[in-house]
Design a protein around this nucleic acid. Structure first.
Lengths: 332, 332
DNA sequence: TCGGAGCCCGTGAGCGCTCACGGGAGCGCT
DNA sequence: AGCGCTCCCGTGAGCGCTCACGGGCTCCGA
């Protein structure tokens, strides 16, 4: 498994230090963890010996005894997407408050790598949290026996512990906003991996509920990047010229859509409206700023850690869902 | 230290599973790590017992024996700054290639928290990497005995192992570019914590070298945020109305500066030029796109991991410095 | 009938550290 | 002299697991 067979330099043990300093293990331990019951001079001698041997206590041996350090494994899809640093920020903050360690796994939204990450996470961390692309992957986590707090990714997490997002509610806000502005033909730029994504299905459902003239083929899939969004809006408008607004899977795609529109000479929001999802700070910087369904991502991270803590304590965490709100800015 | 005295549920040991399944530890081990020399039926029974007890092998006990898992502690200043996710991306990629774990520490650029992070890192990881605000903090790392690959943050890392940036060279590119466009009075928006930051000193040095009319008070400090940049440009122009261009400490500040200028009705780049540093993807999204000194941040991350690997092997890594290049976009 | 080869399983040892002890040396006190 | 301190320091045990053995069992061919 380990790709690099580099000769790790074998570390000095407490015994080595003890021998060199002419004392016992226990005395070395006392010196290193600066406890009482040790003579100042002895301590200095031991510390010198330790330094000269480049001694550092083994975290494994130490962890075996004082089982007090907790490690959380955080699984994210793509750290290049500003959404995830935002999430990590919340997780990190909450973890630090509890004195937890956080190890990071970036899966690139690849189910295989998710399973892999989950496996190593199970071996390296006490508890996990993060986004998973499918229920199957989560089932894998359960099979491994790792407590895992799922962040609602679009599939219905159902009874899985973690923190959910009221995606349907968020989508409703977005589509309602567009409808209220008079748009009847609204497209969607979809960034989901599978076809059963909640944002997509909610979009279709809300459109039907509002009796808008919207169907399956008003949805255009795209890779989750600015370029993907720009390209998708072009494809969509070529196919459906009557469309006057789009709802984008996330802000990255929305930014791309706006970019694509501007490049095509379409004015936003005068000629065409765009609404995004996530409410990233990034959305405020572009011209026009993106109207978006804001989700308190940092809080999600904090809640995820709280849920993980519950799982670790053997309890089942309270189900929580965060409610998005619409942030009307310039693009719609 | 541990803020939350939550009762961690004590985990089942291999012995518990062995007892329940009516076999020996070794057999349980064989089943769990699916090795040979075990009957299929026995294996199933053991695995059932393990599941019912919610057994997961202790990573500490396991690590004590097979010392094959390497953990890298990554110290960053602020995950909210897009620079760092970019860096983390490179680190993660390189770490994954070596089958390393990455634990993350966000210090908020606070020296105290840096020292704290370094201490826990020393206890939890095999090797560290990241940005440190001062040589003093690095000295702390050395005192702790952790091998640490420093990413050149602005102070002169000198003999410290790690990967440097040719900041002076980068700044030269930026200022030269502005001077070539005819700017004689150039300001700087500084985001550094201390006054001896390389970007600042290089800026002053290059300006003098080019015999520009630039002095100490053409440098305006600002918190590293978009708002900080916007505010700083206002202050700077109020104090020095004759300035026609600024060099910003990083792209975030540059974006803020452009924002501030546009809000004040100043056209960029026609009336005023702005050059940033880092070359973040973000800079391409704003209007006008930010001309910036591009640094290959991901590669820096990869190089940092390589340096860390060298340190771990007991060797001293080759000194490397990455050379920035100017990416001329719209703002200058 | 018996030896040898598989197959399956268990036993001691030890990874590097800390915890709970126990104990010697030195001192002042009765 | 004897007692009881305090101040240091060392010795076993054990955390939970894997590795290197060893050994019983069945089956088969000589």
């Amino acid at each position: 498994m380990n790709v690099t067979p580099e000769s790790r330099v074998k570390r000095a043990t407490i015994e080595d230090v003890a021998k060199l300093a002419g004392v016992s293990r226990q005395t070395v331990s006392r010196a290193v963890n600066d406890k009482a019951e040790i003579d100042a001079e002895t301590k200095r001698r031991v510390l010198d010996a330790a330094r000269s041997l480049n001694y550092r206590p083994s975290r494994f041996a130490r962890g075996l005894i004082r089982q007090d350090t907790t490690t959380l494994g955080l699984i994210i899809s793509d750290i290049g997407n500003p959404f995830f640093p935002e999430l990590a920020s919340g997780v990190l903050r909450a973890a630090q408050a509890r004195d937890w360690q956080v190890v990071l796994y970036d899966t690139g939204e690849d189910p295989e790598r998710e399973v892999l990450a989950l496996s190593t996470l199970a071996a390296q961390a006490d508890v996990g949290a993060g986004f998973l692309t499918s229920p199957e992957v989560f089932a894998h986590a359960e099979r491994l026996g790792v407590p895992f707090a799922v962040l609602d990714p679009g599939w219905d997490a159902g009874a899985a512990p973690g923190v959910g997002i009221d995606i349907a509610g968020g989508v409703r806000l977005a589509v309602r906003h567009l409808a209220a502005a008079g748009h009847r033909r609204i497209g969607m730029i979809d960034g989901a991996a599978g076809p059963h994504d909640k944002r997509r299905t909610s979009f279709l459902a809300v459109a039907e509920e509002l009796r808008l003239d919207v169907g399956e083929d008003d949805v255009q899939s795209a890779p989750r990047s600015v370029e993907g969004g720009a390209e998708a809006i072009g494809v969509l408008r070529a196919r459906k010229p009557e469309i006057t607004a789009v709802f984008a899977y996330n802000d990255i795609l929305a930014v791309g859509a706006v970019r694509g529109l501007k490049a095509a000479g379409v004015r936003v929001p005068e000629d065409f409206a765009v609404v995004g999802f996530d409410g990233l700070p990034l959305g405020e910087l572009v011209e026009p700023p993106i109207t978006s369904v804001y989700v308190d991502i940092r809080r999600m991270g904090e809640l995820a850690v709280a849920a993980a803590a519950e799982l670790l304590a053997g309890r089942t965490p309270e189900p929580v869902v965060v409610s998005p709100e619409l942030r009307v800015r310039g693009s719609a």
